[in-house]
Design a protein around this nucleic acid. Structure first.
Length: 341
DNA sequence: AAAGTCTGCAACCGCTTTCTT
DNA sequence: CAAGAAAGCGGTTGCAGACTT
């Protein structure tokens, strides 16, 4: 009944493979082909478990494995597939010829995941993260001071502040009660009331769609930057959108020219200077924060297929900048209360 | 230059599914 | 059909090299 054990694990070698072992394994497989891993180690003269041999072959020695750095296209594909499949590394690897599931998994954990986190995107849900800017805590503060809040435009995405401001200045006590009592979805009830023309992004929209021009739905992305007056300026921009349970903020797809003007930064304020939303930025020169309170949202315009996007020759640093949902970092010493009166 | 820390990745572990007897 | 091994798969670990102090 059943099979005999593939190998006796006692006395079998573990750890990194030597060149000699690799050679033995490759020579054996060249003669007999892969498979039958139970008997392979013995027949090949290896003191290894068959499972170890199989992993070594499939993850490293297979001749069709593509070694080296992932291309930008491969990275895009991984993000897209991960947003659809989750941690189904083998399924993702099946769509990336020459890449193993192990390699993709490692690359995700060491590169892509960190990058998404840095750019404010949850690598699990592929949705924007708003932990940095908890609207309810802002609005719930009894010390809320509008002028201080307005000063925040040097620190945070003004779209966030626009939403916060709209909520804070709403004359509808009923809506505010709904918001603070959390009796129903505040974004649906309050913001859609305030912003009836705003397009919604479903929460399920994966970050790959937010990051990847090719998968942008026209309704989500605009080829042009729209300033806070709703005027088309340049670049790629979209007004903030309200999902069912969170505020979804615009992802900018940057032109090479714009990316050339930006760089990875580690400190707080310098990165803000480079932020598109900063008034000192040329592309944001039409930004008028005062208009936040008085101007209705503009609707996104259809995506222009000729819009520039990060190309395959982009460097990793370039890529770091192409998604700047929250293109700033908050230093550990930063105290949000300092900005609240 | 040395020690400590960080990073990337190969390899292993353990669980689930598939296959063989 | 059941039992048990092989194969598949995702999570985790350990280590070597790079980087920082």
């Amino acid at each position: 009944m059943g099979r005999s054990p593939c190998c006796d694990k006692n006395g079998l070698k573990k750890g990194p493979w030597t060149q000699e072992e690799d050679l033995k394994l490759m020579e054996y497989i060249q003669l007999h082909g892969p498979g039958n891993w139970r008997t392979l180690p013995k027949n090949a003269g290896l003191q290894r478990c068959g499972k170890s041999c199989r992993l070594r072959w499939t993850n490293y020695l297979r001749p069709d494995i593509k070694r080296g750095r992932f291309s930008f296209e491969e990275e895009e594909t991984i993000i897209q597939l991960h947003s659809m499949l989750g941690n189904k590394w083998s399924a993702i690897a099946a769509r990336l010829p020459g890449r193993t599931d192990n390699e993709i998994k490692n690359y995700w954990n060491t590169h892509i995941r960190k990058r998404l986190l840095r750019n404010g995107i949850d690598p699990v849900t592929h949705s924007p993260r708003l932990e940095l800017m908890d609207l309810s805590s802002i609005l719930n503060s009894a010390q809320l001071n509008l002028s201080n809040l307005l000063n925040l435009h040097t620190l945070v995405n003004p779209e966030v502040l626009r939403l916060a401001t709209l909520l804070a200045t709403s004359s509808s006590q009923e809506n505010q009660d709904l918001f603070f009592n959390n009796q129903m979805n505040p974004m649906n009830q309050t913001l859609h009331h305030q912003l009836p023309n705003c397009t919604s992004i479903p929460t399920s929209v994966p970050s790959s769609q937010l990051l990847n021009q090719e998968s942008h739905s026209d309704q989500y992305f605009s080829p042009n930057m729209v300033n806070m007056n709703g005027q088309v300026v340049d670049g790629n921009f979209m007004p903030p959108c309200i999902s069912n349970d969170l505020v979804t903020l615009p992802i900018e797809t940057q032109s090479d020219q714009y990316r050339a003007q930006t760089s990875e930064t580690s400190s707080f304020e310098p990165s803000i200077v480079e932020n598109k939303y900063n008034p000192t930025n040329q592309k944001a020169q039409n930004f008028n924060f005062d208009s936040v309170l008085s101007t209705p949202m503009s609707s996104p315009t259809p995506l222009n297929s000729s819009s520039t996007f990060v190309n395959s020759s982009s460097t990793e640093d370039d890529r770091e900048t192409y998604c700047s949902m929250f293109k700033f970092e908050i230093p550990e010493s930063f105290e949000f209360e300092d900005f609240m009166l």
